[in-house]
Amino acid sequence: MSSPAEFYNSLPPISKAYGTLCFLATTAFQLGLYDPMLIALDYGLVFKHFQVWRLFTNFFFLGKFSINFGIRLLMIARYGVQLENGPFQRRTADFLWMMIFGSLTLLVLAAIPIFQFPVLGISLVFMLLYVWSREFPNAQINIYGLVTLKAFYLPWAMLALDVIFGSPLVPDLLGILAGHLYYFLTVLHPLAGGKNILRTPFWIQRLVSRWRIGAPPMQRAAVPDDRGTSGAFRGRSYRLNG
């Protein structure tokens, strides 16, 4: 069995970086090094007092040390890593762009009064969960040893559990909305004959290449994907950039 250090070093770069930042943010909070309100999303402070860091820092706070915090961190370690090592293997720039697009979408949604929430870290993690559930729709998931269901339904089951246990509904719902928008624009719409209007920007590809983040992409054509089935459970067909 590999050691914790070996496991950590084996994680793909984007999921590892995001999970590490979330862990450090919560650890620093538990040590009393900062007030969470200093990093929370507040558009009034962003635009009136130019506290632009709030547009970024709010995504790294998953709450204080608790069972819920551990579950969110495990979601990154499992679903984020499986996405990055599976459908996004050798497509680090595409995975990074998905995270950026998801963050931008959440920032827009959070500007709507009924969706306002001070921290969007949980929402971004839920977006990863939703995209994972669409990429691996037929995987069998056991929830707390109580019920087994297909991964396609996992985001909704987790949302229901959060509501039952008294957690806010808005963060989970925002993540589902952002994840569905990304999946619709990159998979469902192109599969229906539409154009992929959400291609990874060139500057992100250059950034990933310049800093040698992740494995370099393979130069090959698209391969038909027949893992899934028709309709809502259909998998995607991948096209590598380049």
Rank of each mutant, 00 (worst) to 15 (best):
Q82D: 15
T20M: 11
K150R: 14
F115K: 00
A17K: 03
W53M: 07
L185A: 12
A221S: 14
K16S: 13
Y144W: 13
S123N: 07
W53N: 07
G19W: 06
I39S: 03
A160V: 08
R199S: 11
Y18C: 05
L174I: 04
E84Q: 02
H189W: 15
V131T: 06
F101L: 10
I164E: 01
F47A: 13
L174F: 09
A160D: 01
A40E: 10
P12F: 03
F29E: 09
G80Y: 00
E135W: 01
P217R: 08
A192E: 05
N196R: 12
P216H: 05
F152M: 10
A5H: 10
R72M: 14
T148V: 09
A221E: 13
I112V: 15
I122P: 12
I14R: 00
G228W: 00
S15Y: 01
M158H: 06
D226T: 07
V81W: 02
A40H: 11
H180T: 12
M75N: 14
V223H: 08
N138M: 14
L161I: 12
Y182S: 00
G121K: 02
L169T: 02
W53K: 13
D42N: 15
P113Q: 15
A221D: 13
A151T: 00
P4Y: 14
S103G: 15
V170M: 06
T27N: 05
N85H: 08
L11E: 05
F115T: 03
R234Q: 14
R90K: 12
F60E: 02
